[in-house]
């Protein structure tokens, strides 16, 4: 079997295994699995309102997935998407409440602020990796918590008077759309999905069609060879972290300018950044794969909310399934061996 086929089959098998184990868990705990999956489907696609919500959820997933995938493709593991997303969220809302400008300037400014904040948050681990050879995984994890506490502090002291959330952003900086809300029965669907899709194209174009992208991938693949070929390794490492962080910051802008319109104190992480790892992995770090994976996880997450109402099954079941899918993709060595065995038998 060709490698290309395998790269498509492995994620599919992982999803099937995840759903299978999820079903076994439901049967073991005495829940009605059939009813649960029906509720899941209805909760995602049963009404146009839910579908609007799915697309809304898919938007930050695509961007978070891109952030993880871009770093992966250039040999880095950005586990700090969550933190970069939070600072991006804050920055976009900050610009949204602080200024009063015409929409044509205000909205792009708020979106760019988010990207810049995310990029800055990722610049630090990139710099430490390039100059001090510090592994980016640990630094980005630590930066996540710094982001969480610092943004909470800023919201409480700078952006509000000891309140739990900021004011709503100005109308001129919102991504919300009366039109999109209208055609989806007043879901929170907003224009951000266009930004997300544009970013998918941007990543594909940058990595596959430009010499800079080739350089970034080369450095990820083999630092020493790249250096010998005359590429500046440190600069490329920092650049790929910055771009990855910018994607993550934009994911935050989707929440800040689109879904919520404000920033609130958080007791814990949003989870979108970590789900981004799942999206990137399942999507094989490619542009098309990421869209499909984001669609899958987005509909799972939104549909899950209907499971307790319609089938009495806790919505956390979907979190278990997502975790299992990540696990099976990670352990894909197992699936690959299995596929090899089967296809060899077929040849005989």
């Amino acid at each position: 079997m060709s490698n290309r086929m395998k790269n498509i089959i492995v994620p599919l098998v992982a999803v099937l295994l995840g759903v299978l184990v999820g079903t076994i868990i439901m049967i073991a705990t005495g829940y009605n699995a059939g009813a649960a999956f029906t509720a899941l489907w209805n909760g995602a696609f049963g009404e146009i309102y839910y579908t609007g919500e799915v697309v809304r959820q898919v938007t930050p997933y695509i961007l978070a997935g891109l952030a993880v995938a871009f770093a992966f493709r250039t040999g880095l593991f950005n586990i700090g998407v969550e933190g970069q997303l939070i600072v991006g969220w804050l920055a976009s809302v900050w610009v949204g409440v602080a200024f009063d400008l015409p929409k044509i300037i205000h909205l792009p400014l708020a979106v760019l602020a988010a990207a810049a904040a995310g990029a800055l948050w990722a610049f630090i681990p990139g710099l430490l990796k390039a100059k001090f050879k510090v592994h980016e995984v640990i630094v980005t994890i630590m930066m996540n918590y710094v982001a969480l506490h610092v943004t909470n502090y800023i919201i409480r002291t700078v952006l509000s008077e000891k309140s739990d959330r900021t004011e709503m952003i100005a109308e001129s900086s919102t991504l919300r759309s009366v039109f999109l809300e209208g055609i989806t029965d007043y879901s929170r669907l907003h224009w951000g999905i266009l930004i997300a899709l544009a970013c998918v194209f941007f990543m594909w174009f940058l990595l596959e069609k430009t010499s800079k992208g080739y350089e970034l991938r080369a450095v990820g693949f083999n630092q020493h060879a790249s250096e010998y070929a005359g590429m500046n390794v440190s600069k490329n490492i920092i650049l790929s972290m910055v771009i990855s962080g910018a994607f993550a910051g934009l994911a935050g802008a989707m929440e800040g300018l689109g879904t919520f319109g404000y920033a609130a104190i958080k007791g814990g992480f949003t989870g979108v950044g970590f789900d981004g790892i799942a999206v990137a992995l399942l999507g094989g770090n490619g542009p098309v794969g990421i869209i499909f994976a984001a669609l899958l996880f987005g509909s799972l997450k939104v549909g899950a909310l209907n499971m307790p109402l319609e089938a009495g099954v806790p919505n956390e079941l979907v979190d278990i399934i997502i975790a299992l899918i990540v696990f099976f993709v990670a352990a894909s060595y197992m699936i690959r061996i299995f596929i090899d065995r089967i296809s060899k038998k077929g040849v005989k």
């Binding site: 586990i79 806790p314 956390e316 979907v318 975790a323 990540v326 696990f327 060595y333 197992m334």
Partner: peptide, 27 residues
């Protein structure tokens, strides 16, 4: 055994644990 990326597997453990624990609490 399956030579998975250890960081990714760790992420899966984190996602799984909180999901499973809350699922069982509700159950």
């Amino acid at each position: 055994t399956f030579r998975a990326d250890q960081v990714v597997s760790g992420v899966a453990i984190n996602l799984f644990a909180i999901g499973a624990a809350l699922f069982l609490v509700k159950f």
